[in-house]
């Protein structure tokens, strides 16, 4: 099929609305080993997180999402994932870079850092975030209640424009 690899790829993003949140639910059920509560789905629809909660489309097919929330001046990355068949084609990279860019230029509040948890068994994920400027700053023990290993790395990326 290599000869066809030239087929154009279009990546696009969409903000979350009550109308497409069903797609986020569907993605989360296959992407993550944990089930999220109603609170999560209410939070990601809040207006202030709109630039940081996005659906990702590959040639108009919904293939992934990224969802963050504010914790004071921190942006906490709750979930990010791309469906398995669509990985290794820079979709995740473009998505995280887009969020970093939005966060860097964000005012009210100015965002000091983005941080997230990664299950300690998930080396691939850790490497992915490190490639995008994240650093491990600690381990949260017993972070997960229903899956093992229960510990999680804490990864963060400090943002340039944040005032000291």
């Amino acid at each position: 099929m290599a000869s066809h690899a030239t087929a154009q790829t279009r990546l696009s993003f969409a903000s979350l609305t009550p109308q497409n949140v069903g797609t986020v639910r569907k993605l989360n059920t296959v992407l993550f080993p944990v089930r999220y509560g109603e609170r999560y789905y209410q939070d990601i629809l809040q207006a202030e997180v709109e630039p940081f909660c996005q659906l990702v489309y590959y040639n108009d097919i919904p293939v992934g999402n990224i969802c963050c929330r504010f914790e004071g001046r921190d942006l906490y990355l709750m979930t990010m994932g791309i469906l398995a068949p669509y990985r290794s084609r820079q979709i995740g990279s473009q998505t995280i870079e887009r969020i970093i860019e939005s966060a860097s230029s964000h005012t009210k509040p100015k965002i000091g850092r983005i941080y997230l948890h990664v299950q300690v068994s998930n080396e691939d994920a850790k490497r992915f975030y490190e490639q995008h400027g994240f650093k491990e700053v600690g381990i949260h023990e017993n972070y997960y209640k229903k899956i093992t290993p229960r510990d999680a790395w804490i990864l963060e990326r400090r943002l340039q424009n944040a005032d000291k």
Binding site: R35, G37, E38, H117, Y144, K145
Partner: peptide
Amino acid sequence: KEDCDDVETL
């Protein structure tokens, strides 16, 4: 019925 993990941090 979805079985959801009520992990506060999630």
